[in-house]
């Protein structure tokens, strides 16, 4: 019985792949065929739309409509029955738990972006000069392949706490105790728990920053570095006055990508502390309001705030990209 069920499952998976991709091919092929019956002058004007319409439809159904709906719900009460004006937004900006979440998110933004980009940059420049570069890069990049939840599970062990006198199974506390100090409750202690969580994100994102920046560093012509050396620059001056300005656009792209990622951070907090003990961030707060407290109005308002926070970063990124294209 079990075997047949598995077989059926496999068959339906294959059918889904074939029908899915085949259907899309058929759709485009058919549309193209139909367009060919149009008068010639019209054809070239209609054709782009024929190809774009399916994508636009999917985008509208799964992205644009839900966004509009979220926006509407954010002005309604917890069961989306009555219009409440800006109440949900006033709550979001005055509630003490929300303010802590905002403060934490700001902390995440500054520390994760700042440290992972600068660390990534330093590593990118340094590994460029070591003979076993691929190995070093692979090791630093490896965390990227781990999901946020997986990474959180790993770091729960690193941060694990046993009362004094018991054997410490957490790596960090084992070191602290071995050095003769009292064990620290990394995730419980309100002065360190946010930083403990932020460290995980830095560990995950440094590899990403390093890989992109490293390829940018490699794109700097060797001649230019040598010219600077002959012009009398030492390695430090080359780094600040040649390397950084020349890979500036990559630094901006990496930073904005990480900023967007950090604004959305949720999984790490959810797995490690559940947002307790002052570790909530905007996204985890949103989930709580939405699904734990079943207050759709407040949850949606927070979602809208998050969306608005991301927009300037995206605009900056797109501007930057357009400038770069124009400069080509």
């Amino acid at each position: 019985m079990q075997d047949t069920a598995n077989l059926m499952r496999l068959l339906s998976a294959i059918a889904a792949i074939v029908l899915g991709s085949g259907g899309i091919i058929a759709l485009f092929y058919g549309a193209n065929w139909l367009v060919n019956y149009l008068p010639y002058g019209l054809r070239s004007r209609v054709l782009p739309w024929v190809y774009m319409t399916p994508a636009l439809a999917v985008l509208a159904a799964f992205l644009i409509l839900p966004t509009i709906r979220t926006l509407i719900i954010s002005f309604m009460d917890r069961r989306s029955e009555a219009f409440v004006g800006l109440d949900n937004y006033i709550f979001a900006f005055t509630n003490s738990a929300m303010l802590i979440a905002f403060r934490n998110n700001l902390l995440w933004l500054v520390l994760v972006t700042g440290i992972s980009v600068s660390l990534g940059l330093v590593i990118a420049v340094l590994v460029d000069r070591v003979p076993y570069e691929p190995l070093a890069k692979a090791l630093i990049f490896l965390p990227m392949a781990i999901s946020f939840v997986g990474a959180s599970v790993i770091w729960r062990f690193v941060y694990a706490y046993q009362p004094p006198g018991f054997e410490q199974i957490g790596l960090l506390n084992a070191i602290v105790v071995a050095l003769g100090f009292e064990p620290v409750g990394w995730l419980v202690n309100r002065t360190v728990n946010n930083f403990a969580l932020i460290a995980i994100m830095i560990w995950l994102q440094t590899g990403f920053a390093m890989v992109l920046l490293s390829s940018a560093v490699k794109g700097i012509p060797q001649d230019v570095i040598e010219a600077a050396r002959i012009d009398g620059a030492n390695e430090f001056q080359i780094f600040w006055r040649i390397t950084i300005p020349m890979i500036n656009s990559t630094i901006v792209v990496v930073s904005t990508t990480i900023i967007v990622l950090v604004l959305k951070v949720f999984d790490i907090v959810f797995v490690m502390t559940g947002g307790n003990l002052d570790t909530d961030v905007i996204a985890s707060r949103m989930i709580k309001e939405m699904f734990n407290f079943r207050n759709f109005g407040r949850g949606s308002a927070i979602a809208v705030i998050l969306l608005l926070a991301v927009i300037p970063v995206m605009v900056a990124n797109i501007r930057r990209f357009q400038q770069q294209e124009a400069n080509r």
């Binding site: 012509p221 001649d223 230019v224 040598e226 010219a227 009398g232 300005p245």
Partner: peptide
């Protein structure tokens, strides 16, 4: 001695100008 201690200037085949600097800054860098 490092290149900077040799008091020599070099013109490269690719010119190796600093792309992010103006002509003035390229010439003024050293």
């Amino acid at each position: 001695r490092s290149p900077r201690e040799r008091d020599i200037a070099m013109v490269f085949q690719s010119y190796a100008l600093y792309p992010h600097m103006s002509v003035f800054d390229n010439m003024a860098f050293s």
